[in-house]
Design a protein around this nucleic acid. Sequence first.
DNA 1: CGTGTGACTCGGT
DNA 2: GACCGAGCCACAC
Length: 104
Amino acid sequence: MRSPTPFEGRVYAALKRIPEGKVTTYGALARYVGVPYGARAVGRALNCNPYAPHVPCHRVVGSTGMLVGYAFGLEKKIHLLSSEGVIVCNGKVDLKIFGYMFTD
DNA sequence: CGTGTGACTCGGT
DNA sequence: GACCGAGCCACAC
């Protein structure tokens, strides 16, 4: 287990701020942690440190609402989201309804 | 310190 | 809306 870097710590903190039944995008998450164009860095951090379920990494989807990846498997990710009230259609989520933009 | 990689995003065609 | 190429970031080697 590699020690979590400050950057990863900010990512996990942001993840925990996502209300249940909502999802966010790698881009929005990256901006929130202070890295406007670090969407890839965010994804890499989650893939390398899936502290699940301590960190709800399953609430992170692509900019188009499409689920792009999950360390435990996309099927698992989809199931978790639907269990929280998020409607997943064909591996995609409606960001117009479930998209969380870290307004605060 | 340079190179490669990955759960991304955007702009052009 | 789909496909393709380029850009950006943090991290491991």
